[in-house]
Nucleic acid binder design. Structure first.
Length: 276
DNA sequence: AGTTGGACCTGACTGC
DNA sequence: TGCAGTCAGGTCCAAC
């Protein structure tokens, strides 16, 4: 499932591959995936004929800045953004096709259809409702201990849930919430407002370290959710996971079996010894 | 304002 | 072999 490291990997690759290219035609194969537009043709009209001036990212969203228009792509659970030759066989889950002026295509593929794309006649991110609601980027200086000192006391929720709250910090989902709490030595059920100064510091450091490491390894392609990058290739961070989907396997720090616990209809993986 | 739980969606897997 | 049930999780929305 694409989270910040997967979105960032895709962003970097798209920047290399399609920056400066013109979009000559757009086809929406499934209207529900441009659901912020009442009519899919509005999306098509806003995007067609424009040039890709920048490829950005905010949280888990990949952002194409065109001349005068911003395209925000949420990958959801199974979303992919893949650059292909124009004549490459089409995946049955292809939802939107962008034809480029060099004959290639940018394809938005999404098996489970939780993802979506939206186009706005606006290039200032702060004015785009989709993006304005996000908390700070975890890898930016704004995500620091002073920030946590300010926001965590108001949060009685579990730290695992707080990490996944996009309004608190942008870009973290299940995989990295599991990995970050383990790296920080924090039990996933710890209430956010009970963290000590030392623990907040550990959390900031663990967050940045894990996300950087995951980006460096091209993101995570888990056993069931096969994330692929803009070239259709798997990531490599699944080989370095320490808790996520490792139930019963030994903690790589202390050897105790990793446990899985239900949490808000989902599950959290953690080491009962290393995480308090 | 913060928190919780349900709904959405599809394919793989499990158990009878 | 067939099929119903369960699980996976990002995001939105309603309700408290």
């Amino acid at each position: 499932m694409p989270e910040l490291p997967e979105a960032e990997t895709i962003r970097r690759q798209l920047e290399t591959e399609i920056l400066g290219r013109g979009i000559t035609a757009v086809t929406v194969h499934r209207r529900s995936q441009v659901r912020r537009h009442a009519d899919p043709q509005e999306f098509v009209g806003l995007v067609t004929g424009r040039r890709i001036g920048a490829v950005g990212r905010r949280g888990k969203a990949v952002i194409l800045t065109l001349d005068g228009v911003t395209v925000v792509v949420h990958l959801g659970m199974t979303g992919q953004l893949v650059v292909t030759p124009g004549n490459a066989p089409e995946d049955v889950h292809t939802r939107i096709t962008f034809e480029l002026d060099d004959g290639r295509q940018l394809r938005f593929i999404d098996q489970r259809t939780f993802g979506d794309a939206a186009a706005y006649a606006e290039t200032v991110w702060q004015r785009i409702p989709d993006l304005a609601k996000y908390g700070p980027e975890p890898l930016s200086p704004a995500f620091n201990i002073d920030y946590l000192r300010r926001v965590l006391p108001r949060r009685g929720t579990r730290i695992q849930m707080a990490l996944m709250d996009q309004k608190l910090v942008a870009g973290i989902g299940k995989i990295y919430a599991d990995e970050i709490t383990h790296a920080a030595g924090l039990h996933p059920e710890r209430r956010a407002n009970t963290l000590t100064e030392t623990e907040m510091r550990r959390l900031v450091r663990a967050t940045k370290r894990i996300l950087r490491l995951a980006i460096g390894n091209g993101g995570t392609s888990a056993a069931d959710e096969k994330y692929v990058d803009a070239y259709g290739r798997y990531g490599g961070f699944q080989l370095l996971l320490r808790t996520y989907q490792r139930t019963g396997e030994p903690c790589l720090r202390c050897g105790r079996p990793i446990q899985r616990m239900p949490m808000d209809g989902r599950s959290a993986h953690f080491c009962p010894r290393c995480q308090r």
